[in-house]
Amino acid sequence: MDELIDDFLTYLRYERNYSDYTVDAYSKDLSQFEEYVKDRLEGVFSPGLIDSDIVRSWIVYLLDEKISPVSVNRKLSSLKSFFKFLMKQRIVSVNPLRLVTGPKTKKPLPYFVKEGEMDILLDGDGFDEDFEGIRNRLMLELFYDTGIRRSELIGIKNSDVDFDAMQLKVTGKRNKQRLIPFAEGLKNLMLAYTEVRNREVGIQCEWFFVRKNGTQLSTGIVYNIVKKMLSEIPTLAKCSPHVLRHSFATSMLNNGAELNAVKELLGHSSLASTSVYTHTTFEELKKVYHAHPRAKKEGGNYGN
């Protein structure tokens, strides 16, 4: 890999505190671009020789290879960040991506679980009464009640849970920490879980959520548990921990929460990321209006 790309990845990891997963994604995108440029420029990869025509031809190449517009735009985002870094270092004087636009994508609305369906799932008898059953129900409830990410859940330590103040400290993207309040119901579930965990697992561990042997949960285990439980909802097209994050945000906004408050709870760096949920709630609002008896009459225009 080119030395400049290596320097950029080091900058992302140690100065911007990007996760290993994100740095790896940047690395793959830039390696692919480097390989493409070398094919075009007879084995040479020199950022100063790269112009907008090369970038545009790469976009065409990727689309011809059946890479989705969403993935192409992500790769372009990696490339833009790389050239911004090079300009900052004064290695190049012109950013070849300044006039390049990516392929248009139609952003799908986030999948989410309706409140009634979530109540039936959480209050039903689909969970065993043993350690794993109590733990799995708590995980589902915690995802839905707080909107935290999967990586944030498995990263919770015992010291991050303040039962007196009823708040939870989580570490999000780029190691940013935030405090999330929780209600009495969730507090009782968490206390019940810790009692069973301490009694049955019996191994002192710094992590709040653990396996039977006392070790920290993996992202794969958490994903599979949530997927299995959400698959009980027949109307849900996608089953993952992130769907519960979407469900939390949608439920909060549907029940009158301010967009800025939801942004802070989710740990978003900008309102743009949170505003996608306003479209979801608006779609729900339209359905409510269309269900109104007046809307069903000829000439009714509720929600249009």
Rank of each mutant, 00 (worst) to 15 (best):
F45S: 01
Q167Y: 15
K88G: 04
D160T: 15
Y61H: 13
K66N: 11
F85E: 14
R149F: 09
F143D: 02
I156G: 03
F163A: 11
M166N: 15
I120M: 14
R149D: 06
F82Y: 13
K66H: 13
D119C: 03
I148Y: 09
S46L: 14
I148T: 13
F131Q: 06
L62P: 03
G102F: 07
V70D: 03
E152G: 02
F143T: 06
R137E: 01
R150I: 11
R149Y: 05
Y61T: 05
V70S: 11
S71E: 06
S151D: 05
D128S: 08
F127C: 03
Y144T: 04
T105G: 00
D119K: 15
F112Y: 10
D125I: 04
L109K: 00
S68C: 06
M166G: 08
R150Q: 08
P69K: 03
V60T: 14
A165R: 15
P108G: 03
S57P: 01
S77C: 07
G116H: 11
D119N: 11
Y111G: 08
P69W: 05
G147K: 02
L49I: 01
D128F: 14
N95A: 12
I148F: 14
R98M: 12
E65M: 04
F131C: 06
F82T: 07
S151W: 07
P103M: 02
F83Q: 09
S68K: 12
S68M: 08
K107C: 01
D51K: 07
K88F: 08
L140A: 01
G126L: 12
I148L: 15
